[in-house]
């Protein structure tokens, strides 16, 4: 085989410059990925490994004595702690209500906004305002709205013509969690509306037209065209709402600090409360692991339930 490349010393023809270029390409690539890889190692991999390791020790945030191995002690303590069970229950209730309600309302909003009449963009933007607003600010503003003499109760008063009087929402153990649930759905529904909308837009318009020509009414078209077309979107919406619901923290920390009477404490709130306020890093790591197992279980189960059934 003849080569057009210049001979370089005793090296086989053509290989020399190419290997050098390859090596340079490899080194440059390593240089380019290394900042990201290094940062992910320090701020992701090591802390995740630590979450597993510290959960079996006596580590405290600031401690004169070094942490030592304590086996399953943190977990036995955890599963005897009634407040932890309360936080698991509250988190489960929150997720069980928020997931279907928020997913359903978001889909309803998407269908309502997705019209040919125009204004889609306007309404989409308006419904999205709470999504880009900080949850801390939203929680503070809603604390004012939820007061005994706040705006929400004024509205209830006005619309029931004075027959109904709202409670002191956030200070009543029976209404604090529902109040937080309502506000959270209100805040997050715009996000999932946008996800549903992008799903709706992937369904070809001629499918709807064909169904309409065949005499299908609105419900039949939704049932047989829209719904099957949203399969991938559905999985994503369910998984993200569920994981977001399990992460419930900010609203609780700002509005109720877990109270009244632990009626709004959550898993993440407990982790922060014990790990940061009480500096029990090891115990908080154990809570974080339970949280992670929950998240993992939920996404695996949902992926399984919504898998392609072909």
């Amino acid at each position: 085989m003849t080569t057009l490349l210049p001979r370089a010393g005793a090296r086989p023809p053509g290989r020399g410059p190419r290997t050098a270029a390859r090596r340079r390409e490899r080194l440059t690539a390593l240089g380019m990925v290394s900042p990201a890889v290094l940062l992910l190692l320090v701020f992701f991999v090591i802390p995740v490994v630590l979450a597993f390791a510290l959960a079996f020790t006596s580590a405290r945030l600031i401690s004169p004595t070094p942490a030592h191995f304590v086996g399953l002690r943190n977990f036995t303590l955890l599963f005897q702690d009634p407040v932890f069970f309360r936080s698991l229950l509250n988190t489960a209730v929150f997720a069980a209500v928020v997931v279907p309600v928020q997913a359903g309302l978001a889909l309803a909003l998407a269908l309502l906004v997705n019209t040919k009449v125009g204004g889609t963009n306007f309404f989409r933007t308006v419904y999205f305002v709470p999504v880009v607003t900080s949850m801390v600010v939203i929680s503070i503003v809603w604390m004012f709205l939820y007061q005994k003499t706040g705006l929400v109760n004024h509205l209830i008063d006005t619309f029931s013509l004075g027959h109904l009087h709202g409670p002191d929402w956030l200070n009543d153990p029976s209404t604090a969690l529902p109040a937080i649930i309502f506000m959270s759905v209100w805040q997050g529904v715009g996000f999932h509306m946008v996800i549903w909308l992008s799903g709706l837009q992937t369904i070809p318009a001629d499918l709807h037209e064909a169904a309409a020509i065949d005499g299908a009414d609105r419900w039949a078209r939704f049932r047989h065209v829209t719904w099957p077309g949203l399969r991938a979107t559905r999985t994503f919406v369910l998984i993200t709402i569920t994981i977001d619901a399990l992460r419930l923290f900010t609203q609780v920390n700002v509005m109720t600090q877990g109270g009244p009477l632990d009626s709004t404490t959550t898993v993440v709130y407990q982790a922060v409360h014990t790990g940061y306020d009480q500096q029990q890093t090891a115990y908080a790591s154990a809570i974080s692991l339970v949280f992670f197992v929950l998240v993992l279980a939920v996404s695996l189960v949902q992926r399984f339930l919504t898998r392609e059934k072909d």
Partner: peptide, 29 residues
């Protein structure tokens, strides 16, 4: 083109399943 790039991409994307709250407290420590 360099060895290990596909594996690294998969590993990086896999980190997305771990929420920040899982390791936030060990990270403070």
């Amino acid at each position: 083109r360099w060895p290990g790039r596909r594996l690294l991409l998969v590993l990086i994307i896999a980190t997305l399943i771990v929420p920040f709250e899982t390791f936030a407290l060990p990270l403070v420590w």
